[in-house]
Design a protein around this nucleic acid. Sequence first.
DNA 1: GCCAACGTTGGC
DNA 2: GCCAACGTTGGC
Length: 149
Amino acid sequence: MYWLFKTEPDEFSIDDLEADGTACWDGIRNYQARNFLRDKVTVGDSVFIYHSSCARPGIAGQAEVIKAAYPDPAQFDAESRYYDAKATKNNPRWFCVDVCWRATFAEVLPLAQLKQLPALADMLLLKQGRLSVQPVTAEQWRLIEGIID
DNA sequence: GCCAACGTTGGC
DNA sequence: GCCAACGTTGGC
């Protein structure tokens, strides 16, 4: 399957992913996004990495899922900003996946440009602003890849 | 920094 | 279960 993961580049950018090679995609604290992560994201899936809350919001690169959902360790860490007192090891509430870097685009594909494409009008990114893990259809994926090339 | 959209919380 | 209050996301 195809996905789009959002990240704030001030916190963790596509360049950080490229430098690190792999990353634990943790800190997802939204149930809809959690359900996608936990139930649908699988090893080998392709992911667009989207930069949000920044000067140039848009799709910045690509990653690949290398480990399916497991309990997000941060929920058990009282020191973490992602700590959740109601989560237990036997009954974890939040999940993360591992990804590896695949590509950094020469330029971020701007949100403003995506908005101008009628074929992407139904893309969740454009219809539902606040979802940090979301599915991308094969058609949408191909269309966006075509713009990058 | 503003604000719209949406999610979460908690009283009833 | 409703809904008001509040919090967060995220573009601009």
